[in-house]
């Protein structure tokens, strides 16, 4: 029964850890346990969760992408700059679509290099991360845009739930939570219920077996990186919207938080395993920790350290359970014999 609650990727354990941390912090600092905090954690999760969905897909397929933050800011900044230079305001949806096109293009660069030349994904995306960032600053612009299109500003100020007169602090649930929830459900559906999702798991498990089973492995890998690019671009636009400014120096450097969240969420760094539920929990856990350390008066520097430790713990658990599993299957082999 306990095994059932644990979930196939330790989601149950993660949920338990999350609850324990929330309860512990609430006891230490009752201010933490409020709608205000909850909504603010949800707002803080908007951008990292979209990134994490992309990273989850690429990790399941057996690769890694560290260029997503560079793609995000490249796409979002470029789209906002085009709107600003052209002196028009197409609204959030069109800007997101524009950015998504750039994201798809940059993702295609990653995918084409990785799938066709079969190079290690970490090195390729490290390289393209620098490349995308360099091109952005050299050719598109290096100037901080303090006043993005008015329509984005309007969205930035929109909340779907506003509770103003709850003692002194108000609680606001930002409207962009809605598209993120929709995206999350779509990705979960794609991974679980479609042929494309099955192909991603198969390639991550054993790409030769996937090829022999008839999956077009190269094409699917390209599509994975394009999809990651599109998701990153959407996250970038949301980041610009929420921050109400477009800074070409933003985002890059915070990849660790996202990758740590996905790995904590049970995605195997060796590929072939991972779930959307785990990823959501992982992102929330990292957000809670970032938030609560701040409330507890821990300096920001230690937040980075805490996330680093969590990443190592997450990978450590994977390695340990992998070891246990080989032992266990040896035992069943004996019994089956």
């Amino acid at each position: 029964m306990l095994a059932g609650l644990r979930g196939s990727n330790n989601e149950g354990v993660l949920a338990l850890v999350l609850v324990v941390i929330v309860v512990a912090i609430s006891i230490l600092n009752p201010v933490f346990f409020s709608l205000t905090t909850m909504f603010s954690i949800m707002r803080g999760s908007i951008v990292p969760l979209i990134f994490a969905l992309g990273v989850l897909i690429v990790i399941i397929s057996g690769g890694i992408d560290v260029s997503f933050a560079a793609i995000a800011i490249f796409s979002a900044y470029t789209a906002v700059k085009i709107a600003q230079d052209g002196n028009f305001d197409p609204g959030l949806i069109v800007i997101t679509l524009m950015a998504a096109c750039f994201g798809a293009l940059l993702g295609l660069v990653n995918g084409a290099v990785i799938a066709n030349f079969r190079l290690p994904t970490l090195i390729v995306t490290l390289g393209t991360q620098g490349l995308f960032r360099g091109v952005l600053i050299a050719y598109v612009g290096s100037k901080y845009i303090a006043n993005p299109p008015m329509s984005l500003d309007e969205v930035a100020k929109t909340n779907i739930i506003s509770i103003v007169n709850e003692q002194e602090r108000g609680a606001f649930l930002h409207v962009l939570v809605v598209p993120v929830i929709i995206l999350t459900i779509l990705v979960a559906w794609m991974l679980k219920r479609t042929m494309f999702g099955r192909a991603i798991f198969a390639i991550g498990g054993d790409d030769e077996a996937a090829r022999r089973a008839g999956f077009p492995v190269v094409r699917i890998q390209m599509m994975v990186y394009i999809l990651v690019g599109v998701l990153a671009a959407v996250a970038g636009v949301f980041h610009v919207t929420l921050g109400r400014n477009a800074n070409p120096q933003d985002l890059v450097g915070n990849e660790l938080d996202v990758i740590a969240a996905v790995v904590l969420g049970g995605a195997s760094v060796f590929g072939g395993r991972g779930s959307v539920l785990g990823t959501v929990l992982g992102v929330l856990l990292i957000q809670v920790i970032n938030n609560s350390l701040l409330l507890a008066g821990v300096p920001t520097a230690w937040q980075r350290a805490a996330v680093g430790v969590l990443l190592i713990v997450g990978v450590g658990i994977q390695a340990l359970s992998a070891k246990r599993k080989t032992k266990r299957s040896f035992v069943t082999a004996q019994l089956g014999a």
Binding site: F201, A209, A210, A213
Partner: peptide, 14 residues
């Protein structure tokens, strides 16, 4: 040519 991360059904229909 089986994917170890997938279950029996998923492998048989891969």
């Amino acid at each position: 040519a089986l994917c170890e991360n997938l279950d029996i059904v998923q492998n048989m229909f891969l």
